[in-house]
Each structure stands twice: as structure tokens, then as C-alpha cells.
Design a protein around this nucleic acid. Structure first.
Lengths: 222, 222
DNA sequence: CAGTAAGTCATACAATTGTATGATATAAGG
DNA sequence: CCTTATATCATACAATTGTATGACTTACTG
């Protein structure tokens, strides 16, 4: 027999429901604009539940980010490039990974990408930790791909700038969704709809880095 | 003699002070996070002033956007390409214009770019009008440059997608400022600091569009 | 100089929202 | 069965914030 019968509704269950409801709400509206009352209602919990289980709204938010991070790291493998791989394919994989993270609700991490994107555009106190724990590692994997693409012209400053550019191309389709939709470029919401966009971004970025490489030692910053 | 002596402090002066203070505050914190009390304090006006002069906070916000729009259109010329111009130079001009708008405080329009960028990342009810009045015209001028660059391969869908990409490269340096600063890429804040970034973006974009053009009829979307 | 229109001010008010608390119900242990 | 721990609940409270108002002051007008 189980060592302990659950009560009418167990604490762990309520906690989990609160975390899930909070993740969705925070991803949708951001930290400030999310109401504790909304979270509790969605979780079918009492208003005092957040106080009881997490202390404050901010502590709950931090737990949500931790949960999202965990779901992401053991739910999906950040694409890595191995010696001998075609760097162009590796770039395509990375772009596809980033777009899927930002635009789709992965089964293992339904709101991780949206949460991180929101933190990126509207930072809270949790940003610093998030940068170190999540964003930098993912970025490093992109930088390794770029280093391979730049070849002999690889150099930390240039590599980082190219990484910024590639990231910009990916993240804009999350950040600018509302505007893009209004001018006729709705963000894809399905796995197959993602592919042409990922391909286009990849080719654009390949061309961009190719040109920067071709410009070679002719210094970019005059 | 003037038809009317100003009172202790004239109404138009108070109105203007409110508008200026509101523009700065809205650009810094966004609509929701800006407090009417903060605006009035900065403008050295009474708390009731917003009610009195504009009715509601939202009406004040709309007036701020209108003012920013006006300041922008008759304070700065959106770069246009003329037949015979080098499209690469035209692209560089456009990128430089966009970066200056987003990152610098123009004398004629101190907060226009920041306000529009904020509306872009965090839309309010005013977004639709703003898209039609400001964003679309500026975007059209970029599209004309891109059309020239794509040459025979120009086609509305492709042109629009390339415009999105170029815009992404420019706008990310406003949207992602906090994160970029933390990872060692602080946004330039001076006219001269802007130039290398504008050049890099331009070359990257030229390479990207060049490759897309070279891929030619080989369809991008498989 | 009296009267009037208007700008400014202190203040109030209702709504929203995060947080806290005391009571009640439920289940486990002896 | 009785005690104890705890999950849940209704409710309260203080702080914040947008909006509104009535009184006071100032300056123009006849």
C-alpha cells in the first residue's frame, strides 16, 4: 500500500497545477501583467495558494523559469556540430531548433521558448541568471557552428557579431509577431510551416557570413 | 500688444511639458508601466493635469505617438532610392537611418524610435494606426531598395521576406539591448559608434540577398 | 474695480492587486 | 476515537493607480 494516502487534493498536485498555470500565463502576458488571481483560477486553487506554496509571485516566477529550463535541457538536445559535419547543415539545424523553440509548443517544454523570449524583450530581475544558465550555452553552440563557417577568418568579435545577426533573424519572428501578422507575414505555427522559414533564414545567413568572409582582411569597421 | 497675456503658467506650456515628459516616460517604460503621477511630476504639473488636458492616460499616449510621428516626418527624411543610385549605398543609408532612429535620440525626434520600437515589441491598441501611418511607409522605402538589389529575381514574397530580415538585424539592437549588453555587445550610443555596426549589418544583408539571388529559380521553399 | 473665465492645486474615490490570516475540513497516527 | 498536522478556503488589508472634483488663484474684460 502507498505509504501515505493523498488528501482531498494533494499538495504536490496543487503545486504542479500552479506551476503549469503560471508558466502559461507568464509566457502569454509577462511577469508584471500576469495576475496571481488568474493563475490560481486556472489552477483551480485558492487565491492564498501562491502565498502558501511559493511565498511571493516573484518566487513562483523563478520556479517557473527553473522548471522551463529543466524541461528544455532534458527534453531537447541543443544541436551541436561535430568535426566533419557540414557546417551549413549544422547552421540549418540550429536555426530550425531556435525557431521551433520560439514559435512552437514543444511537448516536453510547452512554454520555455516563449518565456525566454519574453525575458529577452522585457527583462526582470531573473534575467542575469537566465542569461548564464540558458542563453549563453545555446549561444555557444551557435558560435561553434559559425566558427566552422568562418574558417580561417574566424575571430571572436566577428563570430559574436554573426551570432547576434543569426539570433536576430530567428527571434524577430517571435518578438514581432503582432506586427508581422498585420503586414502579411504570420508566424508559422506548425512543424512543416517552419521549414521554409528556417531554410530562408539559413540561406540568408550563409550568404551574409560568406560575404563577410570574402571581404576578408579588408576591415569591416573602417 | 499680444492679444492675451499668459497666466502664471500658460496652458500650452503645461500641455507641452506634459507631452514631453510623457514621451520620455512612455519610451522608457512602455504604456502600462508608466505612471500618470510620474509624468505629472516630471512636467511639474498637478496630478489632475492629465485628466484636465487629455482626458485619459490612453488619450495622452495617442497624442504622444502623433507628436512623435510628426516630429519624425518633418524632422528627418526617410531615405529613398532614385534610379541610377547604387542600391548597395542605398541599403547602407537605410540601415544607418534605422539604427539612428532606434538607438539615438535625434534632436528633432528624441523618442520617436524608442516609442515605435516599444509598440513593436509590446503592442497597445494604437498599434494598428501606427503600422499604417509609420511602419508601412518606412518599410516600403526599404522594399524599394531591396527590389533594386534583387534585380531580375525581385518578387513580392521574396522582397518582403528580405525586408523582414533586414529589419530584424536593425531592430534587435534596440529590443535586445539588455541581453546584448550583458554578453559583451553594448548598443552604440553615438553617431560614430553607429557606423561600424551599420556597415556590418549592410554587408551581412548584401551577402544574404546575394545568395538568395544566386540560388535563383532553385526554389527556396522545398 | 468687480466679475468672469480659466489654470492649478490638494484631495478624494473606486478599482485593482499582492499578500497575509484565521477558520474549517480532511486524513494520518496512536 | 481522539489528537495532530496540513491542505484549502473565504476574507481582509494595505498599497498602488487612474480618474474626478471642488476650491483657490490669476489675469483678462467691461
Amino acid at each position: 500500500m502507498p505509504s501515505r494516502q493523498p488528501k482531498r487534493r494533494d499538495a504536490v498536485q496543487t503545486r504542479a497545477a500552479l506551476l503549469a498555470a503560471a508558466a502559461e500565463a507568464f509566457a502569454r502576458h509577462g511577469f508584471k501583467e500576469t495576475r496571481v488571481r488568474e493563475i490560481c483560477a486556472k489552477a483551480k486553487a485558492n487565491l492564498g495558494a501562491v502565498s502558501h506554496y511559493f511565498g511571493t509571485k516573484e518566487a513562483l516566477y523563478r520556479e517557473v523559469l527553473v522548471m522551463a529550463h529543466r524541461q528544455l535541457v532534458d527534453g531537447e538536445r541543443v544541436p551541436e556540430i561535430s568535426p566533419g559535419d557540414d557546417p551549413r547543415t549544422a547552421l540549418r539545424n540550429w536555426v530550425h531548433f531556435a525557431l521551433r523553440l520560439f514559435l512552437l509548443r514543444g511537448a516536453a517544454h510547452p512554454y520555455a521558448g516563449r518565456l525566454f523570449a519574453r525575458e529577452l524583450r522585457d527583462p526582470t530581475a531573473a534575467l542575469d541568471e537566465l542569461v548564464a544558465e540558458v542563453m549563453l550555452p545555446v549561444r555557444r553552440s551557435l558560435e561553434r557552428v559559425i566558427a566552422a563557417l568562418l574558417g580561417d577568418f574566424d575571430e571572436p568579435g566577428l563570430r559574436g557579431q554573426c551570432a547576434n545577426f543569426v539570433l536576430a533573424l530567428c527571434v524577430m519572428h517571435e518578438q514581432g509577431q503582432e506586427v508581422l501578422r498585420r503586414i502579411g507575414y504570420p508566424a508559422p505555427r506548425t512543424e512543416t510551416g517552419l521549414i521554409p522559414l528556417a531554410d530562408a533564414i539559413t540561406e540568408f545567413a550563409l550568404g551574409g557570413m560568406g560575404r563577410i568572409r570574402d571581404l576578408g582582411d579588408r576591415p569591416l569597421r573602417s
